[in-house]
Amino acid sequence: MKWLSLLTNEWIKIFSRIRTWIFIALPILIIIGVAVYDKVATDTEVNENWKQDITRTLEDDKKALEDAKKNNENEIYIDMLESNIKQNEYAIENDISPYEKTTWKFMKEMAPISSLIGLFVIVVASDIVSSEFSKGTIKMLLIRPYSRWKILLSKFLATLGFAFVMWLVVIATTWLVGGLAYGFGGIDQTYLVVTDTQEVRERTVVEYVFANIGVEFIELTALVALSFMISTLFMSNSVAIGVAMFTMFAGNTIVMLLATKDWIIYTLFANMDLSTLIDGQNQLIEDLTLPFSISMLAIYTAVMLAITFTVFQKRDVKA
């Protein structure tokens, strides 16, 4: 299969750049840094007497809730306080320490690092097509005995492969660092969520961690498809990086502003944050569910890829 060599080539090109290694090293350093800082800075006594601490928080929250109600403050704020209070009450009653740390808890807490991975993946995905155009190297590649779609597919799969490998490396590092810092146990550890009906439920941390690993693969695929499309359409990696980052980060703000509109759930950026849908905490749009968002992302990804391949196949290369 000579075609696989195209994939090997793309893979080599990605890893021949220093940038790629920095992208991999940075999250690892952050993970280690967070664990070390946490170990050094955390007062173990507070952790042992967690009930006192939580009780104090509980009282503060109750006071804040009264004030908020008196002053007719934002509903979301009131809701948040109420659910915090419920969670803490449940924790004290059932003896579930929110401070108890294991490697799984650490992995759950470190989950937002996926945004950083997303950012780096955007850079690589945006670059892999457009930089070949801007440097003119695309000519040397396209005059080979391969149809254009094969060349583009090799680039897409190489980027996807890079994204997945990076995510898995980060997952493994987090687990290892977390394990060394807090112990590898806690597979049955639970945490508390508040449901739509304002009930407090226990969920296992491991369940969340694995769900998060899974949805991140889906998010990364959509992100790669998006960056890929823009970089092929505009042949400019800065435009592609800009648009993809906007979708990823500013997306949340836009969703918040337009949360009341019915059509918002059909937009790409409303569906880009799957991890909040795992347990439904801090969800911006109540209507969204995990299956719905995954379906939306699948449709968007398919359409974006179709556009990318069609345009790439027909483009006159004048680089």
């Binding site: 195209l6 440097k135 003119g136 000519k139 040397m140």
Partner: peptide, 29 residues
């Protein structure tokens, strides 16, 4: 294209790789 070798305008190569690795890119495919 199997039996074609070409340079179109300037030969633009991958700056970040060695000459040998550049050749390997094409040798492989």
């Amino acid at each position: 294209m199997e039996q074609v070798g070409a340079i179109v305008e300037n030969p633009q190569l991958y700056d970040f790789m060695s000459g040998y690795k550049n050749l390997m890119q094409y040798a492989r495919i």
